[in-house]
């Protein structure tokens, strides 16, 4: 598998480290039910069969965190972008 890093180009998947779901957002620790919100943020994950936005880190490259949209059934990659990029 290859991943096209927006900075380094198409690179072998071995250069990247996988983290997981890119759709979860770190909760505001000040909200009243922060404990529950953090529990969900840390532990609860959907396991979709299909398109999935996930975080990959170009550890053996430019150290960018990337959002890779990948089909979990076919591993086909739809989009790759630097995290936070529009």
């Amino acid at each position: 598998m290859q991943i096209e890093c927006p900075f380094c180009g198409k690179r072998d998947a071995h250069e990247f480290a996988y983290l997981g779901d890119a759709t979860v957002a770190r909760p505001d620790p000040a909200v009243p039910d922060a404990a529950r919100a953090f529990y969900e943020y840390v532990y609860l994950r959907d396991n979709p069969a299909g398109s999935h936005r996930e975080l990959w880190y170009h550890s053996a490259g430019c150290h960018s965190w990337l959002v890779v949209t990948r089909d979990t059934r076919t591993h086909a990659i739809e989009t790759i972008a630097q995290v936070g990029a529009r």
């Binding site: 983290l19 975080l55 880190y57 550890s59 150290h63 960018s64 965190w65 630097q82 995290v83 936070g84």
Partner: peptide, 11 residues
């Protein structure tokens, strides 16, 4: 290092 990059770039 990866964690710090995560905190900065993602969070």
């Amino acid at each position: 290092m990866q964690h710090l990059e995560f905190c900065h770039q993602v969070l």
